[in-house]
Structure formats: structure tokens, C-alpha cells
């Protein structure tokens, strides 16, 4: 929660929310790949965790509407591609069972960074590309894939 305290204080002074179409919230840009579906402006980006080389996907979700909007990041499908071209499904690392359907308040934005692990437990393949398909996180989003090179580090770890 520590990162949110100064953010909350800054917003209290500024008195603003998320502005539709800006893909920017509290001075921070959304990840590079953008989509718009229903009430949501969606930003997604990926990188390698600096801790243990696993892929981490950063999501930013801006609510364009005056009503809260539901989003379900557990609906994201993820997979990694190894050098041989084999496609390996990935599952989110969620030791506390938190990831699921949530609401983002009206004209507000939310962020999440989720680490993805190979579905076959214990395997440590080296991916040349990791992809996420966000179709279904909101009913209006029928297709939105984003692929990135997981060997590039940076972003939340």
C-alpha cells in the first residue's frame, strides 16, 4: 500500500480523476499498448521481473464512465513462446487468490502488475516472446492481444 499513500495525497490536492482517452493517471503514463472497450481505456505492457526473470505484465485501466466499471483480469489468457516455437501456457502467480472480478470507480483508474508462470509447474523455459489476450476482461472487449520480449527488464518488479 505504500506507493498509494503519496498518490492519494497528491490527488487530494489536485482533486481530479481519470480523464477519458488520456491513457495517463496521476502523472503516470499507461503501458504502451492501448485499447478501448466499453467504459475502459486499457493499457498493457510486459517486461521481465528483475527478481527471477519471470514475465510480468502491467495493466492500467482507466474508467471513462460516470459509473463504476467491472473488469476481470483473471480472464486474461497468457502464453510464452520458446526458441523452438513451442507455445507454453502461462498462469498468473496469485498466492493469495486475489485476482478476479473487481470494480474500478467512476472516472478513476487502477493498476495491476501480474507475474506469469509456466503452467507445467517447476519448469523454467526461456521465452523469446510472451503474449496476453485480454478478450473477455470486459464483455465489450472481444479481441486484444499484446506480445512482448520477456528478456527486456524494467517496470514493476
Amino acid at each position: 500500500m505504500r506507493p498509494f499513500l503519496p498518490l492519494t495525497f497528491a490527488i487530494a490536492l489536485a482533486g481530479c480523476g481519470y480523464r477519458a482517452g488520456t491513457y495517463r493517471f496521476i502523472g503516470a503514463e499507461f503501458p504502451a499498448a492501448h485499447a478501448r472497450a466499453g467504459c475502459l481505456d486499457i493499457g498493457v505492457g510486459g517486461h521481465q521481473s528483475s527478481r527471477d526473470d519471470t514475465p510480468v505484465v502491467a495493466y492500467a485501466l482507466g474508467n471513462r464512465c460516470d459509473m463504476s466499471a467491472e473488469v476481470d483480469l483473471s480472464a486474461v489468457r497468457a502464453w510464452g513462446i520458446v526458441a523452438s516455437g513451442e507455445r507454453i501456457p502461462l498462469i498468473p502467480r496469485d498466492p493469495r487468490g486475489e485476482i478476479g472480478r473487481r470494480e474500478i470507480a467512476a472516472t478513476w483508474a487502477g493498476r495491476a502488475a501480474i507475474e506469469y508462470l509456466p503452467a507445467p509447474r517447476g519448469s523454467r523455459p526461456i521465452f523469446v516472446e510472451v503474449c496476453v489476450d485480454l478478450a473477455g476482461i470486459v464483455p465489450e472487449l472481444t479481441s486484444f492481444q499484446h506480445c512482448f520480449d520477456p528478456r527486456v527488464s524494467g517496470g514493476p518488479s
Binding site: 500500500m1 505504500r2 506507493p3 498509494f4 498518490l7 492519494t8 490527488i11 480523476g17 521481473s49 527478481r51 510480468v56 485501466l61 463504476s68 483480469l73 498468473p92 502467480r93 496469485d94 498466492p95 493469495r96 486475489e98 485476482i99 478476479g100 473487481r102 470494480e103 474500478i104 470507480a105 478513476w108 487502477g110 493498476r111 495491476a112 502488475a113 501480474i114 507475474e115 514493476p156 518488479s157
Partner: peptide, 20 residues
């Protein structure tokens, strides 16, 4: 020690998605 927002590490999923 650092402020991680990755779910399951130091980050809490959906924290801050509703303002006070």
C-alpha cells in the same frame, strides 16, 4: 523492502481502484 506492486509479492490486487 522496495515498493513492489506485483500481485502476490508486496502488491495487493486492485488496491486503489476505488478512491476514498
Amino acid at each position: 523492502q522496495e515498493s513492489s506492486i506485483v500481485v502476490g509479492r508486496c502488491g495487493q490486487f486492485a488496491a486503489g481502484w476505488r478512491p476514498p
